[in-house]
Design a binder for these strands. Structure first.
Lengths: 339, 339
DNA sequence: TTGTAGGCGTTATCAG
DNA sequence: CTGATAACGCCTACAA
């Protein structure tokens, strides 16, 4: 079969335990024998078996990723690849492997996570989203299993390690920007309010309006989730209000694309008839026509820091929960203009 | 510590081996004891430890994914999420977990794969790309480790399990389509010819030209890899030829977006001045303006079948290499028109 | 049909 | 500094 620690031991004429120590680079082994053992490993093409190690060790050197359960939709969003890129960069630095868990429903996802952690496949978990009242999060808390969250948990967020943007501020920033361009009738396509991100941004939106003494109008808020149909119904509702909005804040660039297409079809022109500002700054946003004004939330670093926090937690257990805020920045392009 | 097979055994008043058999659903155990054991598992919240099982078993119930090494660029392409979605759907059906391996360079990727397979983390590997002379593929072949490839391996492709579109046909189809619209000067942005996919499509392109008795012109072929700058240099070279192309075939929708943006900036209009047809049919392509004419290569099924082949190979070793062709289909939208 | 015992490849704990 | 030896949790002959 494959070459084991014993084969190496035999060749180097030492005990298996010594080989193990060499692997762990234990300082109490003389350089001499270390070298002898290393040569033996080399010449035999030895590679440690992670399973055996995990078993003896109770540690796996790998972390699990939990996607939102509606993978099919969500996976089309370049947000996830980018956040995973951030995570895996950090993981790689520390020699951790990455496990993915998916599921078609919340129940399936939960089962996947249960298997992952009870089965001893991972040392910790990153939740790639944050939604209200998430079962997986509660489960992880109950089990006292190390995890970090991208986004802000709804409850007791101080007790949960997470990394997020300052979304209240971000919501305020875009609104302020639009107000400063002279807009007063600003609609907001925020999608389902299950997501804490959206809740926070709306808060910032309201704050900005308030500061500018513009009254908040419920009818300007679109809570529907849509993507494929471009939200035709909702958009045309907005545009046929007595006083239709002159600007639109959209929760996500991808959604903006689809909305822009709808608006185009309806015969309006962007940004002349309607300014649009959204969030995420996907690579594509630059190539949209017109190029999209959007908030860059630094997705890569969201992932990178989430991994960082988690690994830290795994290596030094029993720490306080940590919070990291990743700075955002408004990227003004051509979908927004003064009124 | 966590609850093991022994605890269950004790509670159910049977031997550990019996519990093990119940888990494997061994038919030689009476329904009675099975039930007793299952109750015990339930009440203790037992979950099998995968590491121990793998160790005893020499099988991990997980598969590894190998991305192209230039993850940073490639990951922004929705191709990968979608193909992974296909893979993980199949994997999930068969209760396999998914490992990801990434790396900044080919060397790093290779090391990652080596660790994955020598360390016994995975039972098989899917290579999510196919490029000429790939070290990872050679390595896997040398080790006789089960793997499948998405795309077509350059050498001995009959001996390697892979799933691909009929790219020669696809290349021919788009070219035929354009010719049938009356185009004769058809340029092709194919990117680096390291990728077998591109090589095949070009073959089809040439074939179509030949059939229509149009001479192949080297100057119409753009082999540069670009994305961020929208290929300004190359595009303007094309457009300032004595006889500039009237149609453009582009290897990937994402690239099309960026090219369309460039062309727009140069003052040309699509499809009036230039028709564009590309490949992949990303979700976004529908929302582009104008909506993109493109070949749907059924990315999801590329992934799904790659996983299917691999799992089959893992479960019944020593099989012949298998080839699967996933059908493609031209989706005509608005970036192409008769000349 | 079920129990016993040894092994999978490592690491950890003692001794020396 | 290094060597035995006993876990880690599960599987699988072999026995009963």
């Amino acid at each position: 079969m494959s070459v084991t620690i014993k084969d190496v031991a035999k060749l180097a004429k030492v005990a298996p335990s010594t080989v193990s120590r060499v692997i762990a680079n234990n300082p109490r082994i003389s350089e001499q024998t270390k070298n002898r053992v290393r040569e033996a490993m080399e010449s035999l093409g030895y590679h440690p078996n992670y399973n055996a190690r995990s078993l003896a060790n109770r540690s796996t050197q790998s972390i699990g990723l939990v996607m939102p359960s509606s993978v099919d939709k969500v996976f089309q969003n370049p947000f996830f690849p980018e956040v995973i890129r951030g995570i895996s960069t950090k993981a790689h630095e520390e020699d951790f492997a990455i496990y993915m868990s998916t599921g078609q429903s919340e129940q399936e996802s939960l089962e996947g996570v249960e298997r992952m952690i009870h089965g001893g496949r991972v040392d910790g978990v990153i939740i790639l989203y944050s939604s209200i009242d998430d079962k997986i999060m509660s489960f992880l808390q109950k089990e006292k299993f190390p995890f970090s969250v991208i986004g802000k948990p709804y409850n007791n967020f101080k007790q949960i390690t997470h990394v997020d943007n300052d979304n209240v501020q971000a919501g305020k920033d875009v609104t302020d920007y639009l107000i400063q361009l002279g807009h007063k009738r600003i609609a907001y396509v925020c999608g389902s309010l299950d997501s804490v991100v959206s809740i926070d941004r709306i808060l910032g939106y309201k704050k900005a309006l308030q500061n500018a003494e513009i009254t908040y109008q419920e009818e300007y808020i679109v809570k529907e989730e849509f993507l494929h149909d471009g939200g035709e119904k909702e958009i045309s509702r907005l545009m046929s209000l007595q006083s239709p909005p002159t600007a639109l804040i959209v929760k996500d660039d991808l959604l903006s694309f689809s909305i822009m297409s709808t608006i185009d079809n309806m015969g309006y022109s962007i940004p002349k008839d309607l300014s649009i500002v959204s969030f995420n700054n996907l690579m594509l946003s630059e190539f949209a026509r017109p190029p999209l004004t959007t908030v860059d939330i630094d997705i890569f670093n969201l992932g990178y820091h989430a991994a960082d926090c988690l690994l830290d937690q795994i290596k030094n257990p029993g720490q306080e929960a940590k919070q990291v805020i990743v700075p955002h920045r408004l990227v003004v392009r051509q979908t927004s203009q003064p009124i």
